[in-house]
């Protein structure tokens, strides 16, 4: 397969990234990951729960050879996000970091200013930075300029399952971006993922849509098929119509000669 996803110098056969929240157990999560074909998974950094030591999700994923993408969720500002990134690097010895800063508790929408500040510092510290942002094309260019490894614009608010509400902005981002575009948040159904890949997204991040499905493994498989269909359609090139209208009469006369 030549159509690989390249992120921060590593290549992947799958274009899905799995968010690991809301699963009943690490075992089901690992199985869902396998069914989805995903080779990248996100996770959060938290203070250890001194009462409960059972939340061990990493080892099954590491055994499968999954690329870990720790995130900074919980951070309310740049300072906390930078601290979370450094902790994740220290714990995992992985320099990938998904920068999430959402002070807004209702919609969990990302703060562009704090996110940008955090990314600026982390890029300089040598992290491979993946910012979660609103679908703002100019913010994407600014982040690209400071050296992020990809941009992760949202389709709609986290967990909302509203699909690609930001479609027209996503199209601009995909057209203008020189770093991979990972559509993050809001993808509620495989059809949303198909659409994202059809318009040229490099990857999609899925969490709730699989974790909260009736049959998680079946849904994971459905997303695997969705990425294949959407990507293939993008590669094939969607058909478009040429609209016709009448030219002015001097132009008609000119064209008669010009097209000989």
């Amino acid at each position: 397969m030549t159509d690989k996803l390249t992120l921060a110098g590593k290549s992947f056969d799958s274009r899905l990234i799995i968010g690991t929240g809301k699963y009943a157990s690490g075992e089901i999560l690992a199985k869902a990951c396998k069914e989805s074909g995903a080779q990248i998974a996100t996770m959060a950094v938290k203070r250890i729960d001194t009462q409960d030591h059972t939340d061990e999700i990493i080892s099954p994923l590491l055994d499968m050879g999954i690329q870990l993408m720790p995130n900074t969720s919980g951070a309310k500002n740049a300072k906390e996000a930078i601290f979370a990134a450094q902790l994740a690097r220290e714990a995992l010895e992985v320099d990938w970091i998904k920068v999430e800063v959402h002070p807004d508790v209702k919609y969990l929408l990302p703060d562009p200013i704090e996110t940008f500040k955090a990314c600026e510092v982390l890029c300089k510290e040598g992290f491979k930075v993946f910012p979660y942002i609103n679908a703002d094309p100019v913010l994407c260019k600014r982040l690209e300029d400071i050296g992020v490894s990809a941009v992760m614009p949202l389709g709609s608010p986290i967990g909302s399952a509203r699909g690609l509400d930001t479609l027209s902005m996503l199209k601009i981002i995909i057209r203008e971006s020189h770093v991979p575009v990972i559509i993050d948040a809001g993808i509620g159904a495989p059809s949303d993922a198909v659409k994202a890949f059809e318009i040229g997204a490099d990857a999609c991040m899925i969490n709730t849509a699989i974790a909260a499905a009736g049959d998680q493994l079946k849904m994971a498989r459905a997303f695997n098929l969705a990425q294949e269909a959407g990507r293939m359609a993008y590669k094939a090139g969607l058909a478009d119509k040429i609209e016709t209208s009448r030219a002015t009469s001097p132009m008609e006369a000119f064209l008669k000669e010009a097209m000989k």
């Binding site: 040429i242 609209e243 016709t244 030219a247 132009m251 064209l255 010009a258 097209m259 000989k260």
Partner: peptide, 15 residues
């Protein structure tokens, strides 16, 4: 393109 599509091109370009 000139011989067979110039009219279409003028139309698209104008739009």
């Amino acid at each position: 393109a000139r011989k067979h599509y110039l009219k279409d091109m003028v139309n698209i370009s104008t739009q």
